[in-house]
Simulated assay, not measured.
Amino acid sequence: MGADATVELTCSAKGCTAPAEVEVRWNNPKLHTPDRRKVWLACTDHDASLTSFLSARGFWRETVPVGAPATGASDA
């Protein structure tokens, strides 16, 4: 990929191809250290449903705009 190439990030919701607007950051405390963050990308239509899914399981940590800096936790 060249330096001028841009990558369009898409929503993580199954079957969605819309551009991602936010990063839904989460971790599973049974599997991940407290500072570890996994990231699902979400479009405006799926932000609430992905957040709700993760919140119901106690996994949701934060939602931030795409590309926002990490808040002290490691992303991956």
Rank of each mutant, 00 (worst) to 15 (best):
41 L>V: 05
76 A>P: 01
20 A>T: 14
37 R>I: 02
75 D>H: 14
58 G>S: 09
32 H>G: 07
11 C>I: 08
33 T>A: 13
32 H>E: 08
34 P>Q: 12
25 R>W: 04
69 P>Q: 14
30 K>F: 05
59 F>C: 00
51 T>D: 09
64 V>I: 10
71 T>R: 13
72 G>P: 10
35 D>M: 05
18 A>G: 09
6 T>S: 14
64 V>T: 10
65 P>K: 06
66 V>S: 06
27 N>G: 13
62 E>R: 13
34 P>I: 08
7 V>G: 00
23 E>H: 05
33 T>R: 15
76 A>K: 14
1 M>L: 08
64 V>H: 06
16 C>N: 10
54 L>V: 07
45 D>V: 09
67 G>L: 07
75 D>V: 08
22 V>W: 01
1 M>Y: 02
12 S>I: 02
11 C>R: 01
47 D>L: 12
49 S>D: 13
14 K>F: 06
58 G>W: 09
14 K>Q: 05
59 F>H: 00
71 T>W: 09
57 R>Y: 04
73 A>E: 10
19 P>R: 15
39 V>T: 11
40 W>Q: 08
23 E>D: 14
9 L>H: 09
55 S>C: 06
14 K>R: 07
76 A>R: 15
34 P>S: 13
59 F>I: 03
11 C>E: 02
70 A>W: 14
